[in-house]
Write a protein that binds this DNA or RNA. Structure first.
Lengths: 247, 247
DNA sequence: CGGTTGTTTGAATCCGTTCAATACCTGTGG
DNA sequence: CCACAGGTATTGAACGGATTCAAACAACCG
C-alpha cells in the first residue's frame, strides 16, 4: 500500500463517524509517537483506564479557548491545529501548529487557565487527557512524569528556536525554515518529507512567522524561482531539501 | 533601613566572599520566591539536604554553555543573567534575562544537554540543584513536582508572550513592554518599580527584542520625549507607568 | 455556475537598518 | 586629581526589506 497518509488526505466532514473508532490506544494511529509508547506494556491499560475521551473537532472549531479552565491536556490524534495567543487589542500570534501525536495546552499548567486558543485547521480528532488523573498516574509512574517533563522542556526549546527565527532571520529564511520544519515532522511520522499539503493559509503562516500574508506569498515565489520548491496553492514539493536547509 | 537592593547595588568583584555566606535556604535573600517557600517547613531540610551547591559567577562568565551535559538546574540567588540561543552561523538570540529566584536551564530537561548559554550580566550567585536528586525529591514530594511543572509551564507562556511581541509589536512598543516587564519583576521582589538600573547594554536589549542597538537607543529617546521615562545611560526612571503599559 | 475565500503581483510608502561620526561614561594610571 | 583610553551610547542621513494598498486572478463550495 502506498503511503496514503493523514497528511495528504484531509478528513472531510463525513469522514468522522459519529462514534469514534477505537478509543483504545493500541489502535490509535499516533501510538508510535504518543505517550502510550513510552509506557511499559503492562502499564498500557492504566492509560486506557484514564478517563480519556476522544473528541472530534471540525475545521475552524476550538479545542479550547484562552480563559477556559484547564481540565485536560490534549494530544492530537488526526488532523492538525494551531495555537493562538491573543491580545486585548485584537493583535494575535500563532505560537505553533500541531500535528498528530503532539500536545496541546501545556502552557495552562502554571495558571490553571488556558492562555491560548487552540483551533483545528481541518477536521481533526484529539484525545483529551484529564490532567488531574494524569497527575495521579504520574504520581505512581515515573515514565509518565518524565514524558510530561520532556514534552514541556521540548516546548520551551521549540519556542526559543522560534524566537531566534523571529529575531534574526529574513522573511525568506523564515519561510524556508518553516517548510523544513514541516518536512522533518512529516518524515518523523512516516509521510513524505518532500511533498505535502499545507494545512494552513498564507495569513496563518504569516501570523506564525511574524510577517504579512503577501510577504509569505512573495517568499514562496522566490524559493520557487531559486529552484528549491515547486508549489501550486497549498501543495508543496521540495526540490532541494539541502538547499532549503541552508536558508 | 531603606530599600538598598540587589537591583540597585551591583556586586563588585570583591563583594563576593570566597566562602559563600549561608548555604542555608532559610537565609537566602530569594527564599520568598524560591522553590523553598513552596515546601512545608518540615520539608525544608530535605531541600537543604540536596547536594545543593552555591556558585559565584563573575560578570561575563558562563553558568553553563550550550552543549554542556545537563546536570543541574540553577536558581539565580543574586545578580542577573542572560540566556543565549546560538546558531552555527554566529547569529544569536537572547531568549531571556533572569533575576533572583528565577530558574535557568529548564530547556535542557528534554535532551539532557543545555541548549543555551547562560551568562552572568554582573557578578552573581547561583544555586545549583542537581537534577537527578531533585527528581528523586520530586518522586516523594508532590509540591516539588508541582513547582517544577509550574516553572516550565510559566516559561512556555513567557516565551509565547515574547513571540507575540516579536511578531506584532513595533520597536517602540517592544521597548516599552520590556521596561514594564522589568518594572513588574522588580516590584515583585520588593524593589522600586519606577527606578532601576538596566543590567544589560543596548546591544543585549536589542538582541532580546529583535532589533539593533541603535534602534533601542532611539526608542528609549522617543519614550523620553513622550514624557514616559527619564534615563541617563542605564539608569531608568519611569515617569508614567500607565502610559508605558498602554504602549 | 456564482459567490466567497484565498493567492498572487505591482507600486508606493514606511519602519528599522546600516554606516558613520560624535559624545559619553568608567575605571586606570600618571 | 586630571587625563586618557576603551567600551558604550547617541544621533544623523541614506538605504533597503517588508508593509500597505490595490487590483487581478485562482480555487473552492454549495
Amino acid at each position: 500500500m502506498t503511503a496514503t497518509s493523514i497528511a495528504e488526505v484531509p478528513l472531510t466532514r463525513r469522514d468522522i463517524p459519529p462514534m469514534i473508532v477505537g478509543n483504545d490506544c493500541g489502535e490509535c494511529a499516533t501510538r508510535r509517537i504518543c505517550i502510550w509508547s513510552h509506557l511499559d506494556p503492562p502499564n498500557h491499560d492504566r492509560l486506557d483506564g484514564l478517563g480519556r475521551v476522544t473528541r472530534k473537532v471540525h475545521a475552524g472549531e476550538a479545542i479550547f479557548r484562552a480563559g477556559d479552565a484547564f481540565r485536560n491536556l490534549y494530544v492530537a490524534r488526526a488532523g492538525s491545529s494551531k495555537t493562538v495567543f491573543m491580545r486585548e487589542d485584537g493583535r494575535h500570534q500563532i505560537t505553533g501548529f500541531q500535528l498528530a501525536g503532539e500536545f496541546l495546552g501545556l502552557d495552562a499548567i502554571a495558571s490553571g487557565v488556558h492562555q491560548t486558543d487552540a483551533i483545528a485547521l481541518e477536521n481533526s480528532v484529539v484525545c483529551a487527557l484529564p490532567y488531574a488523573e494524569l497527575e495521579r498516574l504520574a504520581d505512581s509512574l515515573r515514565e509518565v512524569r518524565d514524558y510530561l517533563n520532556q514534552a514541556m522542556s521540548e516546548e520551551i526549546t521549540r519556542e526559543a528556536g522560534l524566537l531566534m527565527l523571529m529575531g534574526n532571520l529574513s522573511a525568506e529564511e523564515r519561510v524556508a525554515a518553516f517548510l523544513v520544519n514541516l518536512s522533518d515532522r512529516y518524515a518523523m511520522r512516516g509521510y513524505s518529507p518532500l511533498e505535502f499539503n499545507l494545512r494552513m493559509n498564507r495569513e496563518e503562516i504569516g501570523c506564525y512567522l511574524g510577517m504579512k500574508l503577501e510577504t509569505v506569498s512573495r517568499m514562496l515565489a522566490r524559493l520557487h524561482e531559486r529552484g528549491l520548491i515547486d508549489l501550486q496553492a497549498r501543495q508543496i514539493r521540495i526540490r532541494d531539501l539541502h538547499g532549503l536547509r541552508a536558508a
